Simulated assay, not measured.
Amino acid sequence: MTDPSKKHGFFSLNELITTDLEAAKAFYGNLFGWRFAETKTIYGNRYLTAFKDGAFVGGMMLKEGNVPDDVAPCWDPYLSVDDVELSAKQAEELGGEIVLPPTDIPNVGRFCVVKDPQGVSFNLIEHKDQA
């Protein structure tokens, strides 16, 4: 693995949770010159991957149908880990809360959603190509 963003403890992805996917696509696309490809979320809903000069920069999805109602629109960070189950267990032992247990993302890896002891949410991700 040569991509440092896939190493344990590094931020690897930012994902926008929005209430208006087309407006977000237009705003960020025009502001940063991003281009988009469409795929699906783990729930089968529309998902946009964003690229700048051919390089992957992040993702976007609608709040509705993908995240709990109490989650506000936001940029949602992912941190890489070597073993998502082990890291989720360690997060709990350190006072964190597992909001979504380790779950497969087809062709990507496994992730989970965690709240730290102060209530701040983030995602842990074990990339498929780490092995």
Rank of each mutant, 00 (worst) to 15 (best):
Gly59Pro: 02
Val57Ile: 15
Leu79Met: 15
Val67Leu: 02
Ala88Ile: 12
Thr39Lys: 03
Val57Pro: 03
Leu48Pro: 02
Asp76Val: 01
Phe56Ala: 11
Ser87Pro: 05
Phe56Cys: 03
Val57Asp: 04
Leu86Cys: 03
Asn66Ala: 10
Trp75Ala: 11
Thr39Val: 05
Leu86Thr: 14
Ser80Pro: 05
Ser80Val: 08
Val84Asn: 07
Glu64Gln: 14
Asp76Arg: 07
Gly58His: 06
Thr49Ser: 07
Tyr43Cys: 00
Pro77Met: 12
Asp76Asn: 15
Ala72Asn: 10
Thr49Val: 09
Gly59Thr: 08
Asp82Arg: 07
Asp69Phe: 04
Phe56Met: 15
Phe51Pro: 00
Val67Asn: 04
Tyr78Ser: 06
Arg46Val: 10
Asp83Gln: 05
Leu31Asp: 00
Trp75Asp: 09
Asp82Val: 01
Glu64Ala: 14
Ala91Cys: 14
Glu38Gln: 07
Gly33Lys: 02
Asp53Arg: 03
Glu85Gly: 02
Asn45Lys: 06
Pro73Gln: 10
Lys89Trp: 01
Leu48Tyr: 10
Leu48Gly: 00
Asp53Glu: 15
Tyr43Trp: 00
Ser87Glu: 15
Thr49Tyr: 02
Trp75Leu: 13
Asn45Thr: 08
Gly44Glu: 07
Glu93Cys: 08
Thr39Ser: 12
Lys63Cys: 09
Asp70Glu: 12
Asp76Phe: 15
Lys89His: 08
Gly54Thr: 08
Pro77Thr: 14
Phe51Thr: 13
Gly58Trp: 08
Ser87Trp: 03
Gly44Asn: 04
Asn66Trp: 11
Pro73Asn: 09
Gly65Tyr: 12
